[in-house]
Amino acid sequence: MAESSTINKGSTVEECQDMIRRGLRTPMVKFLKEHLEKSGCRIGDNFIKAIHCDQKISGGYARGRGIRAGHLSGDCHYKRELLRGYLKIRGHEQECVKRRVMKSMSGNPNCSESASRDAMEAIWDVCYNDTKPFDRAP
């Protein structure tokens, strides 16, 4: 997509695409991509892409298991949470994952908050405890 519109604190779509390309070269992402492809899920060039978005969001999932993504990405590590202003010491990681899943799901106009919460709670234990292909959450 060759847009030069400004998104997410001044980043252009092209700058975001460049960040995606660099991210795909990191050891953890290469490891995940390798294991996804071994399990039959081919990761094409447009699997992760930047698009211009009029809403004030920094990302979302078109489909998939947001609980695993939040848990395994490291984005809910306590240091990142402290930088965001969340000072809770115990249970911060699960609370962060739940908050981020709900935020991601709120972008779907066909899914109410209560339906989103019910869906998340229904699959929480299975998805949160599934750390494959890692031995444990990174």
Rank of each mutant, 00 (worst) to 15 (best):
residue 1 M to C: 15
residue 1 M to L: 14
residue 2 A to T: 15
residue 4 S to G: 09
residue 4 S to Y: 06
residue 5 S to Q: 11
residue 5 S to M: 12
residue 5 S to R: 15
residue 6 T to F: 12
residue 6 T to N: 12
residue 7 I to H: 12
residue 9 K to Q: 14
residue 9 K to N: 15
residue 11 S to F: 15
residue 12 T to P: 04
residue 13 V to M: 00
residue 14 E to Y: 03
residue 19 M to R: 13
residue 19 M to A: 14
residue 19 M to I: 11
residue 19 M to K: 14
residue 24 L to Q: 14
residue 26 T to R: 11
residue 27 P to C: 03
residue 28 M to L: 13
residue 30 K to M: 07
residue 31 F to G: 13
residue 32 L to N: 07
residue 32 L to P: 05
residue 32 L to E: 12
residue 33 K to F: 07
residue 33 K to T: 13
residue 34 E to V: 03
residue 35 H to G: 05
residue 35 H to V: 10
residue 35 H to P: 06
residue 36 L to H: 07
residue 37 E to C: 08
residue 39 S to W: 05
residue 40 G to R: 03
residue 41 C to N: 15
residue 42 R to K: 15
residue 42 R to N: 15
residue 44 G to R: 04
residue 44 G to C: 05
residue 45 D to P: 03
residue 45 D to S: 05
residue 46 N to F: 09
residue 46 N to T: 12
residue 48 I to E: 02
residue 48 I to G: 03
residue 50 A to T: 06
residue 50 A to V: 01
residue 50 A to G: 06
residue 51 I to W: 01
residue 51 I to N: 10
residue 52 H to N: 09
residue 52 H to K: 09
residue 53 C to F: 12
residue 53 C to M: 11
residue 56 K to L: 14
residue 57 I to D: 08
residue 58 S to L: 10
residue 59 G to N: 09
residue 59 G to V: 01
residue 61 Y to H: 09
residue 61 Y to M: 13
residue 64 G to H: 01
residue 65 R to V: 05
residue 65 R to K: 13
residue 66 G to H: 00
residue 66 G to V: 01
residue 67 I to F: 01
residue 67 I to A: 02
residue 69 A to F: 00
residue 69 A to D: 03
residue 70 G to Y: 03
residue 72 L to C: 02
residue 73 S to E: 06
residue 75 D to V: 10
residue 75 D to Q: 10
residue 76 C to E: 03
residue 77 H to W: 14
residue 78 Y to L: 12
residue 79 K to M: 07
residue 79 K to D: 11
residue 80 R to L: 10
residue 81 E to P: 00
residue 82 L to V: 09
residue 82 L to D: 10
residue 85 G to C: 06
residue 85 G to P: 06
residue 89 I to G: 04
residue 91 G to T: 06
residue 91 G to K: 04
residue 91 G to M: 07
residue 91 G to S: 04
residue 92 H to L: 12
residue 94 Q to V: 10
residue 95 E to M: 08
residue 95 E to R: 11
residue 95 E to G: 13
residue 95 E to D: 13
residue 96 C to P: 03
residue 96 C to D: 00
residue 98 K to W: 06
residue 100 R to A: 08
residue 101 V to K: 00
residue 101 V to F: 05
residue 102 M to V: 00
residue 103 K to F: 08
residue 104 S to H: 08
residue 105 M to W: 14
residue 105 M to Q: 12
residue 108 N to W: 02
residue 108 N to G: 03
residue 109 P to L: 09
residue 110 N to M: 11
residue 112 S to W: 11
residue 112 S to P: 02
residue 113 E to H: 15
residue 114 S to C: 11
residue 114 S to W: 11
residue 115 A to K: 14
residue 116 S to K: 04
residue 117 R to C: 04
residue 118 D to L: 05
residue 118 D to I: 02
residue 119 A to F: 01
residue 119 A to R: 05
residue 121 E to C: 02
residue 122 A to W: 04
residue 123 I to K: 11
residue 124 W to E: 02
residue 124 W to Q: 02
residue 126 V to K: 10
residue 126 V to P: 01
residue 126 V to W: 02
residue 126 V to D: 07
residue 128 Y to A: 01
residue 130 D to R: 00
residue 131 T to Y: 00
residue 131 T to I: 01
residue 131 T to G: 05
residue 132 K to H: 10
residue 132 K to Y: 12
residue 133 P to T: 01
residue 135 D to C: 02
residue 136 R to N: 08
residue 136 R to V: 12
residue 138 P to L: 10
